[in-house]
Amino acid sequence: MPPAHQPPERPPLVELRQVHLSFGSNHVLKGIDLNVRKGDAVSIIGPSGSGKSTILRCINGLLTPERGEVVVGDTPVHALRTEAERIALRKRIGFVFQQYNLFPHLTVLENIVLAPVRILGVARETAEREARELLAKVRLADKIDAYPGQLSGGQQQRVAIARALAMHPELVLFDEVTSALDPETVGEVLSVIRQLVEDGMTCLLVTHEMRFAEEVSHEIVFTDGGEIVERGTPRDIFHAPRSPRTHAFINGLRN
């Protein structure tokens, strides 16, 4: 029996093993190993062009690695061949984008209920009730009938998070979700993500918000040049990095 003070070992929900991917002659991922346990928040940090967003796109099957394995739960993502198999995977994974990508011709409510109703086959009434709850959660209950174009960036991003959550995902991938926002609206988006992490949602974030990453993450992964240079607790990575590359990156941000 393990000692009482140690948390039981939780199985990984996402596992990447030796993932390689190139765009033409550009070798973007050079053997990525990564795992995210259920309920954890893991942040991927690193310089632009280090393959961070590409990793997220391999996890939900938007991109297929040339070599290596990507496993989500019991699903071998690298081996999925048909559209139907990829759709089944994507229903389980929320994805929030840098540019929000809400559907501009639909109201906030329609943006949120479209996928649950059309793809999961949820009854419209149920989907609408859940949408209202989610909007209350992201503090946008009063914007239910607004169109995306009428909202600020931070508001649109919170709707995008609600839209992803409406599918009841096992996992949410955040791809630099605050990079396109005005500084004053960054905080409102981060506090929604913080709440999600506290609620136990498994989150994998690509972010440039170092202070936030340090605060919410269970683990930090530092990537550079398509490789994982170092991974560890926020305290280790931000305050006692082992690799000189990590050290240089963290220090570069501070100065």
Partner: peptide
């Protein structure tokens, strides 16, 4: 239609046909 819009619909689980019809 921006490529990113297509990517976001696909990520929600839209099939090619649903993407065409709804987005």
């Amino acid at each position: 239609v921006p490529r990113a819009m297509r990517e976001s619909a696909i990520s929600l689980g839209f099939s090619r046909r649903e993407l065409l019809a709804h987005v």
